[in-house]
Write a protein that binds this DNA or RNA. Structure first.
Lengths: 145, 145
DNA sequence: ATCAATGCAAATAATTTGCAAAAAG
DNA sequence: CTTTTTGCAAATTATTTGCATTGAT
């Protein structure tokens, strides 16, 4: 069943274009990028609708909102399949690498329980230098994701 | 030596009030709270000076900027002594508990190296339910920090 | 005296919102 | 037809910035 129908929401062409865009990429994206990409599918998508649709996706757990300290947010379409994955971000080129670790997960769960909490979500972000930055002192390309 | 002098910056009364405030608390705070508290020491502190001083403190590693997904940032004055500590935040009352884990740190370093990076900073945030929320289904007090 | 630092108020920029028009069901 | 959703443009809000003045050295 369509996740919009599941929430008793109408399947409009704009929402469909946005959802298709999200499911059609494995890159992290910003609201602005999502607008641009969605408009390639449907010119009528507006910025407001993108901003109104994004919370629907995050509430449903299909997309994860992420904050890397920039003044805009990033969204991770790879969340539903890997809800506990972590991120390493290069300080210079901003390349993002994902990884998962059962060992870290277990430690998190254990420590959280010891402190009287039960765990709902976790986010681990590591920043550092990618190989290029380490070797050359700077990265050539400023990649997004 | 005063950390401001170390950066060849002038020690003004406003900066002094802000720095004293930061070193006088162990609570997480927002820019707005820092303004309010600093003004209790020196009425002449302005919002602009708070916003201009905060980066000086974070650059020096005395304070850590944190993002808990709100639309304003939090700052952690407890950073210099515990640069790798992590946070658990209650989903309801927003109570924040800090913890450290050598084991997690080691795993992070190892995995990061395997991926070709060298680690600079890490931040681990866990959200979940505190004991009160688990038992009562809701927390009485909405605490900040 | 010199130049950095201040407060104020205006600017910025991502995100949100009110509303009349358009589209889904 | 009724109700939701849309685009637009205006509003919001944390943070930043220009500038004339003040204060540290």
């Amino acid at each position: 069943m369509h996740f919009l129908a599941h929430k008793n929401l109408r399947i409009t062409s704009q929402r469909q274009a946005i959802v298709d865009t999200v499911f059609g990429t494995d890159k992290h994206f910003t609201a602005e990028q999502l607008l641009e990409w969605s408009r390639q599918r449907d010119k009528s998508v507006s910025r407001a609708t993108v901003y109104r649709t994004l919370p629907l996706l995050t509430e449903s757990g299909l997309v994860r909102e992420m904050d890397f300290g920039k003044d805009y947010k990033f969204y991770d379409p790879n969340y539903a399949e890997h809800p506990n994955h972590n991120h390493i971000i290069c300080n210079d080129c901003e390349k993002i690498v994902e990884f998962e670790s059962d060992k870290i997960e277990k430690l998190e769960t254990e420590i959280t329980r010891q402190l009287g909490f039960s765990i709902k979500t976790q986010r681990l972000q590591i920043t550092g230098s990618c190989e290029e930055l380490k070797k050359l002192g700077a990265c050539k390309k400023k990649s997004g994701c």
